[in-house]
Design a binder for these strands. Structure first.
Lengths: 194, 194
DNA sequence: CGGTCTCTTGACGGAGTTCAAAGCTAGTGG
DNA sequence: CCACTAGCTTTGAACTCCGTCAAGAGACCG
């Protein structure tokens, strides 16, 4: 199980067998049933998750109990409220499994010790976060420059297989649209095809 | 000059005098006049900037020559198209000085050598990017959950001194609004005060 | 001063939301 | 194996926030 994580790390930095041993000892494997929660608002985010199998979502509760989805994570992606995880602040987000999922878990308390034993992980996470940061700036640019329709078409073009895995109303939320409006877009697209 | 950068790094990791020497040798100081460009679209982002004094903006050209501002950087913030800087891809952004500015420059070619000499920098940048990533996720959440008016009021509350430094139409762009709409918001606020 | 850049004001329009109701679909239990 | 329910999607009408366009008023800089 942990091999999927080790493989992913190896794509960015070198690891010897002692490193792999240290990593294996610092992570635990957990499974979560569909709809199970990994983190709830106002809690401290004690764990950082690497998705081995399944699908997670990060979301906030805005107002009137409306859920805003910020991020999805599928296989080989990291998920946590890293602000809470790093600084010990209460989280403003929730994390939930959208499918039965298997994740590699790094506990807050184990991070600094592991990073001292395997300093390459600092580089690994530096690259992970650098990419994630770049991607989210691109996303902000996209949100402001494109219409809702354009964002939807772009998403299904870039991640066609992912659209199959999540309900439409969650995709709508992620794109910053209402389910009703996304439904209209789908109807237009279908008319064009048939 | 380079001391401001060293001080900033010291807030996150330990440095001895040899480390400081290595850092000083790897960075150069550059100045840019107001309206000068540090990066233009379709170029490779060869340099990463730490703002010692002044103010920069990162923006893209959307359509009809409209500029979308993605990010501002003032003193003690980093600025670059990190995707282009890291992977050598052509940049889709522009970086411009909004004031006469002094920056510490790390050239692409010097990065890996410097990081090998001063491995704490991997940790430093890991923390910088982790924070930046968390902040941009928060921003995406904010964009979707709040109205334009709410985003404007929040911004001037959080960064009152910053509002003085940039023209209104640039703040409007950064918030994803038109200058006209932001002007109306200001008029409402002023009526309330007087 | 004169011209360019920035901010304001107002009329109009459109992309997307809200609300309500009905149609589907899939999982669950009898 | 079918019926039932709950969750998801669709449809339509009314509405709203905010953008677009156009014009004028300041303000800043050479």
């Amino acid at each position: 199980m942990i091999l999927k994580l080790v493989d992913h790390i190896k794509k960015h930095v070198e690891l010897n067998s002692a490193d792999i041993e240290n990593i294996s000892n610092s992570f635990t494997i957990k499974t979560f049933a569909k709809k199970g929660h990994l983190l709830k608002e106002s809690q401290l985010c004690e764990e950082s998750y690497f998705v081995i199998k399944g699908c997670l979502r990060l979301y906030s509760i805005c107002q009137d109990d409306k859920e805003q989805i910020i991020q999805f994570s599928i296989e080989n992606w990291w998920m946590a409220d890293f602000r809470s995880f790093e600084n010990g602040a209460k989280s403003i987000y929730n994390i939930q499994a959208l499918e039965d999922s298997v994740v590699a878990v790094l506990h807050r308390g184990n991070q600094s010790e592991l990073f001292e034993k395997v300093p390459q992980l600092e580089k690994y996470f530096r690259i992970i976060f650098q990419n994630a940061y770049s991607a989210s700036l691109w996303r902000i640019n996209h949100i402001f420059c494109k219409t809702g329709a354009e964002r939807y078409y772009q998403f299904i073009k870039l991640f066609p297989e992912f659209v199959q895995r999540i309900p439409q109303y969650m995709l709508a939320s992620f794109l910053g649209l209402t389910p009703e409006f996304l439904s209209i877009l789908r109807a237009k697209k279908n008319r064009h095809i048939s």
